[in-house]
Design a protein around this nucleic acid. Structure first.
Lengths: 192, 192, 192, 192
DNA sequence: GCGTAAGCGAGACGGTACGTCACGTCTTCCA
DNA sequence: TGGAAGACGTGACGTACCGTCTCGCTTACGC
């Protein structure tokens, strides 16, 4: 029993699913800016109060709706070639940020976080990009004798394509092969 | 004569200034999310229509209000030592993004651009970060034999701190000295 | 159940009453021209949307607010002397049109109806003046052998004071005694 | 010289005519409610200030634009048969109030006067209906020995059709022949 | 014939009401 | 007793018109 008492009508799992489904659809159909709690509730065939009961704003709904997708899209199978894994991760990252629905949601939330402390806290609670990169970055770090922290190395890897895409440049201009080489070389350089 | 005809009452420069001043103040006081066209007009002591006449949304007002500041804060004097210049630029960039008012405005607009095509177009019309970095990046590029484009090199330089700050990490964790070395070394590496 | 389903929060009767009360007060205080939906809502301590939800413009609110008063002020007790009743009705009519609040509202609506089809339709849906006169006119008509329709007879009775007051003449100049005699005589004249 | 000094550019007669013409057209095209000073000025190809310089509101423009037409439409040639003249006048009155453009303007102004003291004063300055009826009413009055004042007799004549039309009833239902007879008979009745 | 003064069209100004929308809360009935 | 329905008060949205105020320009008088 999730609930402390077990008394009263239990939370409707179908209502929860309907809301998450609705927000997914609406994000694609009308975009983030036109997403409204009212619209989500109506699309889900759910009372407005029900949405507010479980999520306090559209960012939370959107986060829950896309976080799982995001982690999935950004997880790449490990091989025994770290360089190949880094390349694969960068490809997944570019695809996620530039082309996926979950990525659009992430970018929207990241943007909102720039001027909304609650959203910032929400995103900070789960460093989706950092976590997803951790494994591959760690693999490269281990084999090098770099003194860079995991966080610094991660920024080095993700930063360039992240900047490229978030500033509206064409994702086609990103050469993940080259970025991989540069990343690995930087970490392996003596004294780095 | 700026106007084509010179007919009619000329635009009030004082009203324009009052609006830009008001938006600057309000951004600091209430934050981006709570900025409203109504609030800007009232704070500026200006009619609402007057604001709408010259700017179509709060993003445009904010952009005009902060673009000049931004260019100023990000322009660093050139010396004869490119490495020193890169470091100075990175310091200015971190200060701008993490601590300046104009930078907060820029981050807000950049965020908004993730889910608002008009704001995206507005920002794309003036690549503030790219432009500001162009000189120092070009100086390093010229002395190397890299085949990286200006855009790619720029992403390499700006990306890591940009990612660091926009994902809410502490700006204190950025080692601009080290980033400078890594950037220059990457460009100078044979075959890069 | 008035509503089809009975679902959802029921209409707030107190909000309705507050609006009707507010419009009554405001009409007296600021006059018809300065009546605004915004003002009504604020005075009633009610959301603007709530006013629009139940009435589509100020004419409708005003109509509902004054129609009941109007019918009351214009209803005169019947006696067994039709002539006396006609005189009493004319006195009530003059008092209503020239001096009562409800009458001021009626004149305002009647005026608005001259250039607003919706208001015209609203007034046409309930011929307040015609209805109020019907009983006394009918009583006189029955006792005569006139071929005048009820409508024609009504215009004959109401027309002169109506014209007098609406064209801004002093209501004191209306001799209801004489108008009564003339009305009754006209209906009773052979061949009329 | 109308002007005190005669100095400065004289009033443009063409601008005046253009405004009066424009307000006539617009009344027909968009109706009274949608008439605006802005619209009038634009339609006349005239500066907004020019309209305000000579008329203080739309009622004044409309009044000047339609008063002459009104007097013309309501003036009927005198014959040596007063009864025939009264009938002709009533026909002209019904045509004016129910079907003419100038009449529509008059009804609009009369309506506005019910809740706008300035418009009321404007209309009171020229009792268009009363003046137009004076001649025929006086002719009948002279031949009778009635003690009714001109004003009372006028209300008796104009009232019924006025009420009929202003309360939105079909003008076709007005029997001017019969109204004429009733009017004349009432004035001629001994003791009236 | 030149200066002064007022009217001209244009159009921006500070205001304010419009009618709509979404917010987040509330009050009802139904399952 | 949770959930749907939907009304509630609040307040921003973007538009329209208000009446006023510059503008540069066009007359027309009077010195």
């Amino acid at each position: 029993m999730v609930d402390g008492s077990g008394r009263g009508r239990p939370r409707s799992e179908s209502a929860r699913a309907a809301v998450l489904h609705a927000v997914d659809d609406l994000l694609v159909e009308v975009g983030y800016a036109a997403l409204t709690m009212k619209g989500i509730a109506e699309r889900a065939g759910v009372g407005r109060q029900t949405v507010y009961r479980w999520w306090s704003n559209k960012a939370e709904v959107l986060y829950e709706a896309s976080a799982i997708d995001a982690r999935e899209e950004l997880s790449v199978p490990r091989s025994d070639d770290p360089l190949k894994d880094v390349k694969a991760y960068l490809d997944a990252l570019v695809a996620f940020l530039a082309h996926s629905h979950a990525g659009a949601a992430y970018r929207a939330l990241m943007g909102e976080a720039q001027h909304d402390a609650e959203v910032a806290a929400l995103l900070a609670s789960r460093d989706i990009l950092g976590e997803s990169a951790a494994e591959v970055v760690e693999a490269v770090r281990e084999r090098s004798d770099t003194t860079l922290s995991l966080e610094q190395a991660t920024a080095l890897l993700i930063g360039p394509p992240f900047f490229h895409i978030l500033t509206g440049r064409d994702a086609g201009g990103i050469d993940t092969e080259r970025l991989t080489e540069q990343f690995v070389r930087t970490l392996n350089h003596p004294g780095a």
